[in-house]
Design a protein around this nucleic acid. Structure first.
Lengths: 348, 348
DNA sequence: TTGTAAGCGTTATCAT
DNA sequence: ATGATAACGCTTACAA
């Protein structure tokens, strides 16, 4: 059994003594073709093991029915939830989704973006990486009118539809909650400020403190890359302060966890001596001991929304101007911050 | 600023009064073209914002420099590690990787496989889903001579290169370890037996028991889908047995965790009253309380190996017959199974 | 209802 | 070192 080169519509046409265009039409369910020939064509196509060459069709139609997705890391629960939401909508509309991860590296993000562009994806959904401060690889899309939707980590400098979560509000709620639990000195382990999500989380933290009549002590505000190591180091650093904090609002769950682990190691009690709130509601936050209070983001819904917006643009239904959609956050109170018996599940 | 249709090599050729083939050659660094013209062409190409249409090139060359990857779930640590390994090798060789998840659904897996085929990926790396008992969507690749590499959850019925972990050995080590800790009645929460990884884990469990002089009690061997719910239900069920087990070897970490959570809820002590070992070394296993003993798999290396094998096939270096590579597993002993003070880190 | 022919943007084969 | 031309496999006016 040797490998023939793939059967094409011409092979089918020749076998049936008809024209390739008729075959093409039949295969695409063009109603002009008579039921009879159409069925015959489909039958022989199946017999001959015909597989359409989408590449050729795409080249001709200038459409690929494919949308590209770039996220920093696919194994973060939040991102994989968003991806599932995107797939949910895209597959329903007959689109294929091709997922890539940038690993928070600008070079890789740029490489992937160019590859997706070169492969003529119909649209791109992206959450940018930590390093991304330069956007030429994304302007490529916006300039050529290829639909582009940002989510979570968005770029202010590029006009596009954007889906973000209410980072400010989430941070505000988290901090207010700590205040409500009686914490007096609340620290913040934050992320890189070139990403607006971390700017907003910092902003929400500060606003909550101010509203509560607290002064902002800059020695309590740390800016890190939010890795596991950063969490432990920051915890250590904060404890060495002459006037150490009694609570920390962490900009992600990873640092919250490693801070807690550090405190456990040195025998400092969480939440009694120091209360912790994280951000993102990673699955581990629920199962570690103590379980971690955190801010929940509607990842799946964000993905759905992003895909809907993108598909609308692709289909030319983008009558309106670009918008930025802010999705609600939810405070999930768990052991790491519950100091009071009758703690309200959510503040505000 | 209106949107011109994309500039092509013909546009460049016209502008420079040369032929399109020369432009094509220059852009592909063909040494035949003189340094001078080559540079001129590249310069004007850049000025004109030329972006090669890979679709057209791929159609012509019948190569896409793209490899498809299908995994059940992208947010499982093991799978995302494998993906990172694949990307590591693929990007080095100038290949693009397009990732898809089947969600353990045969229908989606099949849809994706057909889409990847239609888009003419140069090769496919796949770990099949729980439902996959029928393989026509994969035979598509093997029959047409498109390189195909399986990893982890492989298909015996299809001849191809395969990378698996030593599931049998891992399960054997895990069970032996429990025996070594003094456990007398060791249960097993297993997975669907159409997947050979779960058959092998079951096999390793049984072999270890037999070698240790234990009888195999089928009431202690459960077959589940390994979800969180399955873990809790299985734990419940096992405790209700007249002669309840004092240890469980779980075929994944998810069920190990939910079993432990159940035991915590009802006040049964882990590992004192019941010892637990999981499988896969999910990140949460290290951070929960008690931390979960588990079997570590070399995901990243498996991905690298899979990509290497695939690229070799793509490049025609597949002189040898297909092989199955078995990667080593490692027992990681943590709190959930450590009953003895001087517990050896690994048995065997 | 079906056929003809051009064209999508490349690369590859022959020429020159 | 460069050019002309066909071809990759499909879709789509336009014709019939």
């Amino acid at each position: 059994m040797k490998h023939h080169s793939e059967t094409t519509i011409h092979d089918i046409a020749k076998k049936l003594n008809i024209s390739a265009s008729t075959v093409s039409r039949a295969l695409n369910n063009n109603p002009l073709i008579s039921r009879k020939t159409s069925e015959l064509i489909k039958k022989t196509a199946a017999e001959m093991g015909y597989r359409p060459n989408v590449l050729a069709a795409n080249l001709r139609t200038k459409k690929t029915k494919t949308i590209g997705v770039i996220v920093p890391l696919i194994n973060r629960h939040f991102f994989s939830s968003v991806i599932s939401g995107i797939e949910d909508i895209a597959y329903q509309s007959g689109f294929t989704v091709t997922i890539s991860q940038s690993n928070d590296l600008l070079e890789k993000e740029s490489y992937i973006a160019h590859a997706l562009f070169a492969n003529r994806v119909d649209g791109l959904i992206i959450s940018i990486g930590m390093e991304t401060k330069e956007y030429s690889h994304l302007q490529l899309f916006s300039e050529r009118g290829i639909p582009l939707v940002f989510f979570d980590r968005v770029v202010d400098e590029i006009e596009a539809n954007k889906i973000v979560v209410d980072d400010f509000g989430g941070a505000f709620k988290a901090t207010k909650h700590l205040v409500g639990q009686g914490c007096k000195r609340i620290a913040h382990i934050g992320g890189p400020l070139n990403l607006n999500i971390y700017r907003n989380r910092l902003g929400g933290y500060k606003a909550a403190l101010e509203e509560s009549g607290f002064e902002i002590d800059n020695s309590l505000v740390l800016q890190t890359s939010l890795t596991r190591e950063d969490g432990a180091n920051s915890a250590k650093q904060l404890l060495q302060l002459p006037d150490a904090p009694d609570a920390i609002f962490c900009a992600n769950d990873t640092t919250a966890l490693s801070a807690i682990t550090h405190f456990k190691d040195i025998g400092k009690k969480v939440p009694e001596e120091i209360a912790i709130v994280g951000f993102s509601n990673e699955p581990f936050s629920e199962v570690v001991t103590p379980s971690i209070s955190t801010i929940k983001q509607p990842g799946f819904q964000m993905g759905q929304k992003a895909a809907e917006l993108l598909l609308n643009q692709i289909n030319g239904f983008n009558a309106k101007q670009f918008e930025t959609f802010v999705m609600p956050t939810e405070l999930v109170v768990r052991e790491s911050s519950r100091k009071l018996k009758d703690c309200p599940e959510a503040v505000n």
